[in-house]
Design a protein around this nucleic acid. Sequence first.
DNA 1: TCTGTATATGTCGTTATTTACATATGTTTG
DNA 2: CAAACATATGTAAATAACGACATATACAGA
Lengths: 185, 185
Amino acid sequence: MNTLGYVLLSIISVRPYTGYELVQIMAAASWKAKHSQVYPLLSKLEQQSLLTFEYVEQMGKPNKKIYSITEKGEEALIDWIKSDSPEPIIRDEFLMKIYAMRLIDMNMAKSLIEKRLAIFEEKVTSREATLQAIEKKHQEKIKDITSKQFGRYVFFKRRHQMEKEEILWCKWVLSLIDDYSKTKE
Amino acid sequence: MNTLGYVLLSIISVRPYTGYELVQIMAAASWKAKHSQVYPLLSKLEQQSLLTFEYVEQMGKPNKKIYSITEKGEEALIDWIKSDSPEPIIRDEFLMKIYAMRLIDMNMAKSLIEKRLAIFEEKVTSREATLQAIEKKHQEKIKDITSKQFGRYVFFKRRHQMEKEEILWCKWVLSLIDDYSKTKE
DNA sequence: TCTGTATATGTCGTTATTTACATATGTTTG
DNA sequence: CAAACATATGTAAATAACGACATATACAGA
């Protein structure tokens, strides 16, 4: 079994989801995976009896498969959780571009950073809505570390924190550019 | 040309490096790539005249190839920098495990988080050493956004910030676990 | 009315990435 | 004194991931 498989088990362990929903959740979690990778993997996990699915026929919408974790799946998941984790891999093209940012002109650089800032400000806004929804709906459960909401809550809290820091960093870099511009005047 | 190729160009644009060094820098940048991917790609970039290399024979150590960026390479790099950046992908297994953390016992969970905390505390320490070295060596240049040090400096500042936040988050989650334990007593 | 978007799942060919194999020498640590 | 680690580059096979193709329905907006 591969890592993505465990990631899927991890999410489904909280509650049943369709492949379509899983793709969206993973995108929100910054662990982006395309549906072309997710659907075949869900099938495979189902064949290995780590997942089961319920086929739901819908009207006006395409039919769907709602996947749930099995006991065997939960056991596999637990073993994975207990195992050593490799260090995170962050593929952030924007930040790598910053590394050689001097090569483009200052106004272009500023506008690229402002764009990044805007993207992350929107992320933070929608993240805060999600977090507040969890806090409202599960106010007691999120303090109960044994509840299904706990892991999800602290996970998205981390993402929220990260996004807020990105905004601060963008503003800091923009201020450095402005300071430099002033010395050149 | 693929993304990794541009990432290599970006780093080499600051100063010439060997493939071996690039693998290490990328690991420090959290954009991990294996040498088996880096070496063939450097060859390819050299064949495309985006890079050149100097073959340096060493005594007591294996010989090495020091790659420098060409004008054509810099032009390609600039085009990439100006292009839209996809959103960052973060493959963080530990955090995904947190999502289903309730499945393991509390002490195990605590020790996993403490381990994460220790790893990031070490990261922060070595990161601070690197940043202080840059600040000392290039004190004036890091405020000059046109200098080669600027991009590298603000890049690693972001990583540093991120790692410090990870530590705070770990401590927060540990405190939530402790609070919960107390209510159970 | 046409276009785009959301819902929903799937396959297939290509590309990216990892793991393992391969080699060579000096230094450090137990 | 042996084993592990650092330096340094490379290839080959296997796996993971992406982009494009494919299908079907409903709804919103231009």
